[in-house]
């Protein structure tokens, strides 16, 4: 699903964010991206999202060659991805329901059946009762659930979570993590960048650790792995 081959990324300001990074994430995997700030986690995610292009090497996401995408193809790639961020990025003047529907609307999805799709995904994240509430009235954990519902509504094969629990207390963190596990249980690839080593430990999921723009540890290879 996601393949990095000898990828380097140097930003226009000269910062070398990634150096010769290679890994492969297969269908159905749950992968933690760990490392300190500036280690290269964000650069990997932004390459997956096609926000940037690799300086060298090849990035393939769900078959799309990120380095060679035209401006028109970028939205097509993004529709294959569900994305959540630390800061939720909800539209504050839209209700929960409208925020989720928004992701369907921008893809030009048909109007009929939209409401039921939205309700189904809200039920899945446990927020069906708050469909008509505005984000400000929700707790951080609930807001992140809305963001997750929005990311899921298009049934993406890949789910990207950039520090999704960074702003949440421990209880909310556990809830969100369980939700991501359920999503992965349905066969969706989940890539989660996190600082939270307590969360990573003992889960048995694959861990990619970055340092100075390089992969310094890959639990899959340690185990003689599948990657």
């Amino acid at each position: 699903m996601i393949r990095f081959q000898h990828v380097s990324k140097t930003y226009p300001n000269g910062v070398e964010a990634l150096r010769d990074v290679s890994f492969h994430i297969a269908k159905g995997q749950f992968v933690f991206l760990t490392g300190h700030s500036g280690a290269g986690k964000s650069s990997i995610l932004s390459l997956i999202l096609a926000e940037h292009r690799p300086t060298a090497g090849d990035v393939r996401v769900s078959g799309f060659p990120v380095g060679k995408l035209t401006a028109n193809q970028v939205p097509r790639l993004r529709r294959k991805l569900g994305i959540v961020f630390q800061d939720f990025r909800l539209l504050e003047y839209r209700t929960v329901e409208e925020n989720v529907a928004f992701a369907l609307e921008v893809t030009g999805a048909r109007r009929e059946g939209m409401a039921s799709r939205v309700m189904r995904v809200l039920t899945r994240v446990g927020l069906a009762s708050k469909a008509h509430v505005y984000p400000k009235e929700l707790s951080g954990g609930e807001q992140q659930r809305v963001a997750i519902a929005r990311a899921l509504v298009n049934d993406p094969p890949i789910f990207i979570a950039d520090e999704p629990t960074g702003n949440l207390d421990e209880r909310a963190t556990r809830g969100i993590f369980q939700l991501l596990q359920q999503i992965n249980g349905g066969g969706t690839v989940v890539v989660m960048a996190t600082h939270n080593l307590a969360l990573v430990r003992d889960t048995g999921y694959r861990v990619l650790e970055l340092k100075g723009g390089q992969v310094v540890y890959d639990s899959a290879q340690e185990a003689g792995g599948t990657a």
Binding site: L49, P75, R76, R78, R89, L91, F102, A103, T107, A151
Partner: peptide
């Protein structure tokens, strides 16, 4: 700008 950024992230085309 925030809204536009979100639109782009969820796969909105520039025309949209």
């Amino acid at each position: 700008a925030t809204e536009i950024a979100i639109m782009r992230l969820v796969g909105a085309t520039n025309q949209y």
